[in-house]
Every structure is written in C-alpha cells, then in structure tokens.
Amino acid sequence: MTKISMKVNGEAVSGEVEGRTLLVQFLRDHLGLTGTHVGCDTGQCGACVVHVDGESVKACNMLAAAADGAEVMTIEGMAAPDGTLSVIQAAFQEHHGLQCGFCTPGMVMSAADLLNRNANPSEAEVRAYLEGNICRCTGYHNIVKAILAAAATLRGEAVAAE
C-alpha cells in the first residue's frame, strides 16, 4: 500500500492505495465522489473524464498513485458551493444536453477542457473534441448545442433563445 495525497476540487485529500488502484476507484470508493462514472472501464467511453493538473484524462485509465501530488477536478467541483450550476452545466440543462445522464459528467468535463483551450470553437471542433465521449441517448446534437451556447455565454455574448 502506498500513501498518496492530492488536491481534489480544491481540498487536500489523502489515502492508502494499492499500486493497481485506479484514479476513478480512489475518487469513487475512497473519497465517495461518485459523480465520476465508470462506463466501459476500457478507456473508450469517457464517462470517467476528470481534469488532472488542468487537462482532461480518463480516470479509469490512470493509476491513483500516478496522481499523487496532482490537482484533480471532478464534476463535483464544477458547481458553486451553494449549488449554483456552472455555465456549462446550466447550458446542458437549458439545451436538454442529456437524457439518462450517465455520460454527462464526462461530457461536462471534456467540454470544460475544450473551452479552456479554445474559447470560440466551431461546431466541427466541438464534435471532434467529443470523440472520446460516448452518449447512447442524445445523438449528441443537443450536447453540441449546449457547449456552443456555454462558450458564447462565457465569451459574454447574448445567446438567442429558441
């Protein structure tokens, strides 16, 4: 067992893990942060996407011990402490960017990563950036719409109501 410590959503946390403990297991089973989902467990579906040191990674495809000393952000860190949704989350709600919601934490985290890198993505860039996030309900259309709307809001532009 190895002792690890990291910052998760701004809070210092620590725990004892095996070498083979995945970051997603540490977040869900050790810290009780079950917002990060395990969909495929093979690194393909993207339901487990979190940010590690500011970049999106698949938490089912990274060892917990490898994140020792890192700053991790999960879906639980997106809304304000009083529960006010982040701009991206609010846009998913507004534009019906989810149905069953299982993929949504990963979608939101990938969207946040995209908008950190590119404040004004085209629709094609949004679709390309989501290639590692699989959704079996929405057909992606409203997810893309939500992310484009969130980008516009974050740029300070008024978004036309439909």
């Binding site: 999106s56 990674v57 698949k58 990938s110 290639e131 590692g132």
Partner: peptide, 9 residues
C-alpha cells in the same frame, strides 16, 4: 491519436 483525454496522457 486517440481522443483528447488519451492525448493528454
């Protein structure tokens, strides 16, 4: 290669 989250690692 892969997707953005894979390329970050």
């Amino acid at each position: 290669i892969g997707d953005p989250a894979v390329r970050h690692k």
